[in-house]
Simulated scan of single mutants.
Amino acid sequence: MFSRAYQTHHDRQLALWLLACAVVIYGMILLGGVTRLTESGLSMVEWRPIMGIWPPIGEAAWLEVFAKYQQFPEYQKINQGMDLAEFKVIFMYEYLHRVLGRIIGLLFVLPLAFFALRGVIRPGLMPRLLVLLVLGGCQGLLGWYMVKSGLVDRPSVSQYRLTAHLGLAVALYAAIVWQFLNLWPKANSASTRGALPSMQSAARWSPLLVVLVYLMILSGGLVAGTDAGYSYPTWPNMGPGFVPPGLYAGTPAWLAAFEDVTTIQFNHRMFAYVLLLLVGGFGLRLVLQSADGFMRGAGVAVIAALLLQITLGVSTLLTRMAIPVAAGHQAGAIFLLTVLLFTVHALRRRTIVTDN
């Protein structure tokens, strides 16, 4: 058995490794959003897991990949007449997105093997890390499965596959951040445990807020996958009023929540208003009722992240999906999720002792 000091030392090393993975995945999610906003995702029409790490080198190689792109719907229906210089721009966004995915794989696999061979991974943790490894591999496969949906008949990817691809990436990110918090010594010191018994009810239901923000991000995936943000670039009204005409039109009506741009955007807005009340109320309760200075600060951070995200959401609409603003909106969603994860973990540590 390892001594407590020995295990704490290696837990810190593992935590820093997981934090590095989370930071790079955050960047990956942001780059994926920019790739989508610039309509670059279908520029690479082949999936070469090994050789695909090398970009085209030389004019002949670029002309070859451009000729392949010209055989598919996006070029034939949308980008016909695009020259090679324009193609290189969209190609590089998708290329960098795929290369970063491979880098993340190496960043996870190599240190994991190193720590495992040294025998410093605490009991019970290795199976969780292996699950994350498998899901990371599935994420790569899901990304190609998504791209394939835009290489057949229509020059756009399936909103269902895009949302699944985004959802798995965010779930992996959240799981890694949570495991980082479980391992980071300062987040689990004895002085934090059981310090706020009066906040136990908030601690018990606070994970639900994380789930709701995650579902909100999935809702945003549907908005991105259907370009629903362009349908009503106004706020607070959608067209003539707050409730737009044609809501949930079609048969069956429930399908409109996934395929009708008006309904998708309306639902995304309503979800935001619900989160404003629930997450904002949670942050305000921490500020006003917590006896712990750290948790009061966390409550302020939650409110600030929430207001920033709502401001970015409204700005995205009013700027008609301007790429920097829309990318900021996606980054803001992950930032809000991150702040909530840190806050919920800290609150639960200060109210009820939970297992790692």
Score class of each variant (00 low, 15 high):
R12N: 09
A20Y: 08
I29A: 12
L37Q: 08
M44I: 15
I53G: 15
E59W: 13
E59A: 14
A60F: 10
E64I: 12
F66E: 09
K68N: 14
Q70W: 12
P73S: 11
Q76F: 13
K77G: 13
K77Q: 15
N79F: 12
G81W: 03
D83S: 06
E86S: 08
E94F: 03
L100Q: 13
I104A: 01
F115N: 05
I121D: 08
G124D: 03
P127V: 02
L132V: 01
V134Q: 00
G136D: 01
Q139R: 13
G140N: 13
D153E: 14
P155Y: 13
S158I: 08
S158V: 09
A169M: 10
A169G: 11
L172G: 00
I176R: 01
Q179C: 06
L181G: 01
A187H: 02
S189H: 08
G194P: 01
P197K: 08
R204N: 09
P207I: 03
M216V: 08
D227V: 12
D227S: 11
T234R: 10
N237H: 14
G241M: 13
V243I: 15
F258G: 13
N267L: 10
H268C: 09
R269H: 07
R269N: 07
L275Y: 02
L276P: 02
F282V: 11
G283M: 02
R285N: 10
Q289I: 04
A301D: 10
I323P: 00
A331N: 08
F335C: 09
L336G: 00
F342S: 02
T343K: 07
V344C: 04
A346I: 00
N356G: 00
N356E: 03
